[in-house]
């Protein structure tokens, strides 16, 4: 893609590409805004920027990731995602064919999830002003009456339910970046979680207190944040946390712990003890939760520590890392 000269033709080319890839009645209208009907109830809205490297990884690319990530942020409130908007910052020289692939996978991801990308914008910036492609995405959704999930709602005794194996996305990205291939390719778990979340809400109703998608910072960051907001601690059992062998081996190689590694298709739910079995059963019945597990419980703790009983028997603090994982051993 070029910047400046020929801008008009280029803009048309790009907008044509997106219109085709996202194909819906709103975009076809070619307005600067899209109108839609509002029904009664509470709406949720989220926005997120997607800046990743590499842009293509096993199991997806920045486009599908953006759609999934935005849908998941909405779904974690228990809401049904409805509409998305996307803004693209494209570096001059970016290959049109790559952009096309990305746009198409966004369209496919949205279509599969039953949501529509109804507004968008593209800017091509000079070489060096962006690293290939940045996507900024906003989404809105509708929450059912009476549902009020929030990070400050966990209670002592609640169960911690995890929808599947940890670390797949982060390790897929990192093994690509560090070129440490494994016999079996590690594929990102990038997926839209709203139907899993809906199945859980249907099974657990008011028993679900909090849902989170443990993206950057991993499960450790998600649970530490809930612990802080809800003013309690968590005790986890390492042996209960599913991790794929290839992911575990790569984490070991890189000196990382799966609990700190990013996921893009997993959720963690804090559930009242008497609803936990029903919710876990609903998770296991859903294709995205077939490896779901009860991995621990919320406990009273004035330090608000997340602690994990390790496979060696000791119980240690699962830290909330600020910045990257720095060495500690002196």
């Amino acid at each position: 893609l070029s910047h400046g000269a020929g801008g008009r033709a280029m803009a048309q080319l790009i907008s044509g590409l997106f219109h085709q890839a996202f194909g819906n009645e709103w975009l076809a209208g070619s307005n600067d805004q899209s109108a839609f009907d509002v029904t009664a109830g509470r709406m949720v809205m989220t926005t997120d920027g997607y800046v990743i490297s590499p842009l293509f990884f096993p199991g997806g690319n920045i486009g599908s990731l953006a759609v999934h990530g935005t849908i998941n942020d909405i779904a974690m409130s228990g809401a049904r995602p409805l509409y998305l908007s996307a803004s693209f910052i494209i570096e001059e020289g970016f290959r049109f064919s790559d952009l096309k692939t990305i746009a198409e996978s966004m369209g496919a991801a949205a279509c599969a999830a039953g949501v529509y990308i109804i507004a968008g914008d593209t800017k091509v910036v000079e070489r060096g002003k962006a690293d290939g492609l940045f996507i900024s995405m906003t989404g809105i959704g509708l929450v059912a009456d009476g549902l009020d999930l929030s990070a400050d709602k966990a209670k002592v005794g609640d169960r911690v339910l995890l929808s599947g194996s940890l670390g797949d996305h982060g390790v897929a990205i990192m093994s690509k970046r560090q070129n440490v291939a494994f016999q079996t390719e590690i594929v990102s778990d990038s997926a839209a979680l709203h139907s899993l979340a809906a199945a859980m809400v249907a099974a657990g109703g008011g028993g679900i207190r909090v849902m989170r998608d443990p993206t950057r910072g991993g499960l450790a960051a998600a649970l530490n944040e809930i612990a802080l907001q809800s003013e309690l601690g968590f005790h986890l059992q390492e042996s209960m946390i599913p991790v794929k062998p290839a992911v575990a081996a790569t984490c070991e190689l890189l000196g990382l712990e799966p609990i700190h590694v990013a996921n893009e298709g997993k959720l963690v739910a804090i559930v009242a003890p008497d609803s936990a079995d029903a919710v876990l059963a609903a998770m296991k019945a859903h294709p995205l939760g077939s490896n779901a597990a009860d991995i621990g419980e919320a406990v009273a703790d004035d330090h608000k520590f997340v602690q994990m009983t390790t496979d060696f028997g000791g119980r240690r603090i699962v830290d909330w890392l600020w910045g990257e994982q720095l060495p500690r051993i002196c």
């Binding site: 890189l254 000196g255 990382l256 060495p327």
Partner: peptide, 10 residues
């Protein structure tokens, strides 16, 4: 080079 951070220390 410290391949694997704290892992390399162990």
């Amino acid at each position: 080079m410290l391949p694997g951070g704290d892992r390399a220390a162990r």
